[in-house]
């Protein structure tokens, strides 16, 4: 154990809040939680007495369950809120909902909302730490962190030696609905912070209108880059967002951008296949390709719990606000 440096940012709204060093710290904490998760009783008392509220204003099962499992592994109490069963249905405003939950005394709010910027707005209405669990088309930082962790883990198992968060030299292709994807936004940021070279692959209608501010290149031809990629990161086609206008035909999409069996066979021998889920087989990935050994999809889900434990620990352990005087160092 070592005493850590300057305090973490108060919230996790964007991957940019962490920076390269912050991401590396989360990765190393996640390593510790990996050891904990392998025990017969995968639980530590670190956040005993803390309450984590999950506030999901948009449907999600895996992210919510993942955060709640992560919190319970740290012995935190979990309070669960979903929009469909709440007073929002009765017309209560978002602000009143947040202030009501705040009044019950929670230490962290994990917020998912269909509108970009809601988690940032929530920070103004509560003294709790706010974690963005996906906001509109903006960001989904813990998804990016678990993806970085999964790549780091796969590379370390392959190469042996200490896991390293340095992804330089790695070429990562993010394929699919980039424009409407908060996952793409967070992942491009995280991958590039760690030194990887990111290529966005999508039909022009699903690429951002401008690549300004995206540390990535783009191409509308998957076949032109397929054989150079070390990681193929497939995104779900969000029919609820992209709609019929931008993507008229899912079969055509599959034939041009889907990871078919033929395309999977053309990948580098050690290329990794990833998907944030939920995976729509037959659209972005062929049913057989999803079962290949190179597919890390199940690991991504498992690592989600580890990384979310790491993020909760990093934000909730240590001095809260206001800072508590530490006195003498009891380690020495």
């Amino acid at each position: 154990m070592r005493v850590a440096g300057p305090p973490a940012r108060d919230h996790l709204l964007s991957v940019a809040d962490l920076g390269r060093e912050g991401i590396d710290e989360v990765m190393r904490l996640a390593d510790s939680f990996k050891e904990v998760s392998a025990r017969p009783i995968p639980k530590v008392p670190a956040l005993r007495g803390k309450t984590v509220a999950t506030l999901f204003f948009e449907a999600s099962t895996r992210t919510r369950l993942s955060f709640e499992t992560a919190a319970r592994r740290l012995s935190a109490d979990v309070m669960s809120f979903s929009a469909s069963t709440s007073s929002l249905e009765k017309g209560e405003s978002l602000r009143d909902t947040i202030e009501t939950i705040d009044a019950m005394g929670v230490d962290a709010m994990v917020v998912r909302h269909r509108s970009s910027g809601v988690p940032a707005q929530v920070t103004a209405w509560t003294s709790a730490v706010v974690l963005n669990a996906g906001d509109g088309q903006h960001e989904h930082p813990t998804q990016a962190l678990l993806d970085c962790y999964t790549i780091r883990e796969a590379l370390s198992e392959r190469g042996g030696g200490e896991p390293s968060s340095d992804l330089s030299g790695l070429r990562i292709g993010i394929v699919g609905d980039i424009r409407f994807s908060r996952v793409a936004r967070s992942n491009v940021l995280a991958f590039s912070l760690l030194g990887a070279e990111v290529t966005l692959v999508a039909p022009r209608t699903l690429l951002p209108s401008s690549l300004e501010g995206w540390p990535a290149q783009a191409t509308p031809e998957l076949d032109s880059v397929l054989e150079e990629l070390d990681v193929v990161y497939l995104l779900r086609i969000q029919t609820e967002r992209a709609g019929q206008v931008l993507l008229p035909d899912l079969d055509e999409y599959h034939s041009r951008f889907g990871l078919t069996r033929e395309r999977a066979a053309r990948l580098k021998p050690d290329a990794l296949i990833m998907h944030p889920g939920p995976m729509i087989r037959g659209v972005e990935i062929a049913p057989e390709a999803a079962e290949l050994p190179a597919s890390l999809v199940t690991r991504q889900v498992r690592n989600g719990v580890l990384v979310r434990s790491a993020v909760l620990f990093r934000l909730l352990a240590g001095p809260g606000r206001p800072a508590v005087p530490t006195g003498e160092d009891p380690v020495a």
Partner: peptide, 20 residues
């Protein structure tokens, strides 16, 4: 590593080393 078990966890930030 005892970082997750300390009673002064709220007093200072710590990063665990390997438990093996």
């Amino acid at each position: 590593d005892v970082a997750f078990y300390r009673d002064d966890i709220s007093l200072r930030r710590v990063l665990p080393e390997a438990t093996d």
